[in-house]
Design a protein around this nucleic acid. Structure first.
Length: 208
DNA sequence: GTCCGGAACT
DNA sequence: AGTTCCGGAC
């Protein structure tokens, strides 16, 4: 509903989704918004990126940090161009085998590009789910796999709904259910959220 | 000065 | 389970 309009949300092109996710792994939205369009213009598709010189890729990435990810992305492009006929896999199990692709990025590409009904748990989503569904004691101890299990049960079975669901939770985590001082009074799910409920009566305590 | 963030590696 | 990478926000 109150989602921000971001360039990589208006596409289902797997390559573009992949690039945005690689950038977002390490950097905040505002900064990615600055780099992403230039990168896409310079390397519009996987083949172009695969053919590019490491130097050129690095230059486009300069200032974003975590340069190993740029190398991974480049290696991935070469990999996929060679082995998968320049088409990114749609299955998270396959995606995760690619360099620089972990559980989150695999889920994100599968959902945001291919509209597969799979969860994508980044730290935002992780934080939101833990606050909403787990009590304070459990929250600190919950293993990541538990949150993924929960996310799997929550994601709509319909791919388009799953896409919106994943985007919505990430947006919630990024704008409202932020790490430091969550804005519970503005939160649309506060009435069903453990944390939101307990905080409604509090003046403004911190979240443990 | 401290916290934040995915994946990879120890 | 803890560390590293890198730059920005606070």
């Amino acid at each position: 509903r109150a989602a921000r309009d971001l360039p990589w949300r208006n596409t289902r092109d797997p390559y573009r989704v992949l690039v945005s996710e690689f950038m977002l792994q390490q950097t905040q939205v505002a900064r990615v918004a600055e780099y992403y369009p230039r990168f896409i213009e310079r390397f519009p598709d996987l083949e172009t990126l695969a053919r590019a010189k490491p130097r050129a890729v690095r230059e486009q990435w300069d200032g974003l940090g975590y340069y190993a990810r740029a190398r991974n992305l480049h290696a991935l492009a070469k990999d996929v161009t060679r082995r998968h006929d320049a088409t990114l896999p749609s299955d998270p199990e396959e995606l995760i085998k690619l360099p620089g692709v972990g559980p989150y990025t695999a889920g994100a590409v599968a959902s945001f590009a291919y509209e597969k009904p799979v969860p994508a748990v980044d730290t935002n989503v992780n934080r939101v789910l833990r606050r909403v569904f787990f009590d304070r004691a459990t929250r600190n101890v919950q293993r990541a796999t538990k949150v993924w299990e929960l996310a799997r049960t929550l994601v709509p079975k319909n791919g388009k709904r799953a896409w919106r669901f994943n985007q919505a939770i990430m947006e919630l985590g990024a704008l409202i259910c932020v790490a430091r001082r969550p804005k519970c009074p503005e939160c649309p799910v506060r009435t069903v959220c453990r944390t939101g409920k307990s905080r409604r009566t509090d003046a403004q305590g911190r979240i443990g």
